Simulated assay, not measured.
Amino acid sequence: MYDRILVPTDGSQGVERAIQHAVDLATAHGSTLHAVYVLNSASYGGVPIETSWEGLHDMLQQEGEHAIERVQAIADPAGVPVVGSILEGSPSKEVVRYAEENDCDLVVMGTHGRGGIDRLLLGSVAERVVRSSAVPVLTVQVGDGERER
């Protein structure tokens, strides 16, 4: 049913719950896991001018490589093949674009499950992906488990 499962990662420890869920699904279906990390350069617009863009970009690239390596480390014991990609742009748009261009069957991504004013002010990459993706999206609660209702 699922040949290609996409799992976006931000490299945080909390997202590992979503990664493990994606690995479990990939194991059950004999799937390939596509791990993506998106460099969101727009969110670094407030960095002081003296900061070297090249240095910042290199740092973000390295962070992305570590995040992809962590997905690989979680998938390896289960024998799940991983294709890793580092993308640049708006995280939600890049996840949707990658899923569609690579014929992914499912997107598995973490969400913090914020409610109320936090969701209104912060928005949610997962929510934007759910609303705009033609590919089915499975969200997995990550973080401390406290939800505002």
Rank of each mutant, 00 (worst) to 15 (best):
P77L: 03
P77M: 04
P77I: 02
P77K: 03
A78R: 07
A78C: 04
A78E: 15
A78D: 15
G79H: 11
G79P: 05
G79E: 12
G79L: 11
V80P: 03
V80F: 14
V80L: 09
V82N: 10
V82T: 09
V83E: 15
V83M: 11
V83R: 14
G84Y: 10
G84P: 06
S85Q: 14
S85P: 00
I86P: 02
I86G: 03
E88W: 00
E88Y: 06
G89N: 06
G89I: 02
S90C: 01
S90W: 01
S90K: 11
S90Y: 06
P91F: 11
P91S: 08
S92I: 00
K93E: 15
E94H: 02
E94L: 09
E94I: 01
E94M: 14
E94P: 00
V95T: 13
V95P: 01
V95Q: 11
V96A: 12
V96Y: 08
V96T: 14
R97C: 02
Y98G: 03
Y98E: 07
Y98K: 03
A99N: 04
A99G: 08
A99M: 06
A99P: 04
E100R: 00
E101Y: 00
E101H: 02
N102V: 02
D103E: 15
D103Q: 13
D103R: 13
D103T: 03
C104T: 05
C104I: 01
D105A: 01
D105E: 04
D105C: 01
L106T: 01
V107N: 05
V108E: 09
M109S: 05
M109A: 05
M109K: 01
G110F: 09
G110E: 07
T111V: 04
T111F: 10
T111C: 06
T111D: 11
H112P: 00
H112M: 09
H112F: 08
G113E: 03
G113W: 07
G113D: 05
G113S: 03
R114V: 01
R114F: 04
G115Q: 06
G115S: 15
G115R: 13
G116D: 02
G116M: 02
G116P: 01
G116S: 07
I117T: 13
D118P: 00
D118N: 08
D118I: 02
L121C: 06
L121Q: 08
L121K: 06
L122A: 12
L122R: 08
L122D: 07
L122H: 12
G123K: 04
S124Y: 06
S124T: 02
V125M: 10
V125I: 15
V125D: 12
V125H: 08
A126D: 05
A126L: 05
A126P: 02
E127T: 07
R128M: 13
V130R: 11
V130A: 08
R131P: 01
R131A: 13
R131H: 13
R131K: 14
S132Q: 14
S132L: 12
A134F: 00
A134L: 04
A134T: 14
V135K: 08
V135I: 14
V135W: 13
P136G: 03
L138T: 14
L138Y: 09
T139L: 10
T139W: 10
T139F: 12
T139Q: 04
V140G: 10
V140C: 10
V140T: 12
Q141T: 07
Q141L: 15
Q141C: 01
Q141G: 14
